[in-house]
């Protein structure tokens, strides 16, 4: 499987989806006008990944801003990860938020409430 590596832009996050170590990462800001279009290839990558995942899968979410249409796309990614059978991979979500950024922290808790995957909330000085 080919990895995805995208540089971040003013409106889209940097993306690093690496098959060999089972790590996927979004970093920066996700505020595109058309989030569905941006996230479609990431969705497709994860669908393919889910057919032959690594024993351990880590999703590193390091977003400093995201808009509401991205929030929906993020949920789709979580749901794809959740749909992989537990005996094939263990999925861990690492949710980063900056110190004093209650909104991103709360957003992480919102997902935690609806996605039955283990979340680790990680406070950092700067994302």
């Amino acid at each position: 499987m080919e990895n995805i590596n995208l540089e971040g832009t003013a409106k889209t996050p940097s993306v690093s989806f690496e098959y060999d170590n089972g790590t996927i990462e979004l970093r920066g800001r996700s505020i595109p006008e058309n989030s569905v279009e941006f996230y479609r290839p990431l969705n497709e990558w994860l669908k393919e990944y889910s057919t032959c995942p690594q024993p351990k899968t880590i999703f590193e979410v390091k977003l400093e801003y995201f808009n509401t249409s991205s929030s929906k796309c993020l949920l789709d990614l979580f749901k794809l990860l959740e749909s992989i059978p537990k005996d094939k991979t263990s999925v861990y979500i690492h949710w980063y938020f900056e110190k004093d950024d209650g909104d991103i922290e709360e957003a992480g808790e919102d997902y935690q409430a609806i996605v039955p995957l283990p979340f680790k909330m990680i406070e950092v000085d700067e994302i």
Binding site: N34, S35, V36, E37, T68, S69, S71, K72, L75, E106, D110, A113, I114
Partner: peptide, 24 residues
């Protein structure tokens, strides 16, 4: 929060790719 989470979880995208969550 409850309204946001329930629309996030159940809602569909509009034909403009928006999620109906903006005002909330």
């Amino acid at each position: 929060r409850d309204l946001y989470v329930s629309i996030l979880n159940d809602g569909e995208y509009s034909n403009k790719g928006t999620a109906g969550l903006g005002l909330i």
